[in-house]
């Protein structure tokens, strides 16, 4: 289903959910939960957004049913730890590549995805200052290295 323009801000989280459907369905579930919450704040009044959000809710309910034996789904505190570990693992991979001077598309994507997953942590409550800083750094690094590679410069 096409994403209404008013909900464009959640497109990257929805794409991350799609990319993790098979690799890590728990990540896919919480990315969609984040998208749902954010989408409702952005616009749940116009018919096209309501229709989209109702579909997203159907998807979330069916995912929860299918994964009813996963502690990470039935207990959000376990889900919180799962998403945080996954995001930080991705951040550390990209950071190690960066510090080793290995600049490539995959590490840029890892920095960016880790920042999106750190966004997702906000569904569990207020984010820690450390995670806010990691998110800021990861997003900045992803943009900076992407721009360097595009213009043929070597990142510092």
């Amino acid at each position: 289903m096409a994403l209404p323009a008013q909900l464009r801000a959640i497109q990257h989280h929805l794409r991350t959910a799609q990319e993790h459907e098979d690799r890590d369905p728990v990540v896919a579930y919480y990315c969609r939960l984040y998208a749902m919450q954010s989408g409702m704040k952005l616009d749940s009044k116009t018919p096209e957004c309501r229709k989209f959000l109702i579909k997203l809710m159907d998807q979330l309910e069916s995912m929860k049913k299918e994964m009813s034996d996963h502690d990470s789904i039935t207990q959000e505190v376990v889900g919180n730890a799962h998403i945080e570990n996954y995001a930080l693992k991705m951040f550390i991979y990209a950071d190690n590549e960066d510090r080793g001077g290995r600049f490539h598309k995959n590490m840029i994507k890892s920095f960016y995805t880790s920042s999106l997953l750190l966004d997702v942590l906000s569904v569990f409550g207020e984010m820690s200052e450390e995670n806010i800083q990691h998110r800021k750094y990861a997003r900045w690094k992803a943009t900076y290295i992407h721009n360097c590679l595009k213009s043929g410069e070597t990142p510092l």
């Binding site: 939960l33 749902m36 919450q37 409702m40 749940s44 009044k45 018919p47 309501r50 959000l53 109702i54 809710m57 979330l60 309910e61 929860k64 039935t74 207990q75 959000e76």
Partner: peptide
């Protein structure tokens, strides 16, 4: 008509909020 549309929209919005709360109930 616009008042009816707005009532429908707000009812659907409430339903979505309720479904979200139920989804997250442990």
């Amino acid at each position: 008509t616009s008042s009816l549309a707005s009532t429908v929209a707000s009812t659907e919005q409430d339903e979505l909020s309720q479904r979200l709360s139920r989804l997250r109930d442990q």
